[in-house]
Design a protein around this nucleic acid. Sequence first.
DNA 1: CATGTAATGTTATACTATAACATATAGGAA
DNA 2: TTCCTATATGTTATAGTATAACATTACATG
Lengths: 159, 159
Amino acid sequence: MPIGFEQHDHTTCIQTALTSAETCCADEGLQLTKVRRRVLELLLVEHKALGAYDILSTLNSEGLGSQPPIVYRALDFLVANGFAHKIEKLNAYSACCHPGKAHAPVFMICRACKYVVEAQTEPLRNFLGSTAKAAGFLIERTVIEIEGLCPACQKAEVL
Amino acid sequence: MPIGFEQHDHTTCIQTALTSAETCCADEGLQLTKVRRRVLELLLVEHKALGAYDILSTLNSEGLGSQPPIVYRALDFLVANGFAHKIEKLNAYSACCHPGKAHAPVFMICRACKYVVEAQTEPLRNFLGSTAKAAGFLIERTVIEIEGLCPACQKAEVL
DNA sequence: CATGTAATGTTATACTATAACATATAGGAA
DNA sequence: TTCCTATATGTTATAGTATAACATTACATG
Ligand SMILES: [Zn+2]
Ligand SMILES: [Zn+2]
Ligand SMILES: [Zn+2]
Ligand SMILES: [Zn+2]
């Protein structure tokens, strides 16, 4: 799994995520059905976020469904069980890169190449916890998204 | 301005925000037109986020415009100049509570009463800065939103 | 007044998401 | 096996959010 935008063996990302989903579903009695699994695979193709309708058009071309509820149900399942995340800023969805762990994901989104990196963030979690505690606020979910330029696109920008 | 969900003199919030917007526009040669000012006022009525179409229906009833571009243009102006923020999680907009300062706002959103509090966060800004730096990422914008329960609604929940 | 820029008006459309109800499928109980 | 129930999928329709494109107006400046 990448901790940043560096090169990495992405087949490992894919395998880890799929295996983790399979294991988790088996353990918890959840059904990783054909459509759900296929959507997860599509989200794992690259570290980019996909819109629901992008996914739907692929599903449609593969005969797995043609109407919005098909894809939204699959996405709801994946998000609810921690196999994927919604990127609010993009109205798009991304496979979880750190499955199996409770986490408050931080996404770095490159506006140029569209890559999305999910960072590990225990310290941030603690930090937000204390901010919220000072206000007496009970945290249930967090959305932390950073938009900007990845290292490669910063270099390209200069040219 | 509230630092949390406590009671406060909200007329001060309103006055400060409007004065700040007027001053800033005068200084920068920006036009705080009728529609733009009215939208800002509407966002300041309460510490809640308003959807674009909520705002539009008020504008419409006041004869200030009836089509979506009217409100989206005003919102774009307010957001671009730091007088308001978009709350991505809610697809809604909220007046800035700390105008005039560069800031990476943190929003605490109560899912029960819908109040939205914008916290001050220099330390978080620094923290995200170092997280991004480790990945070589250049930050341009941040979205930090915490969803949960405010103190009052936590008490109500127990009943 | 002439000219250019910024703002607004207007129509149409694109994109994102869910409600509601029908049907099918899988797994467990009788 | 058969029936039952819960879960998942199929289908139609619609709600909610946002922008493109182009016409018109307002206004500052020379
Ligand atoms: Zn990878
Ligand atoms: Zn994750
Ligand atoms: Zn206030
Ligand atoms: Zn602000």
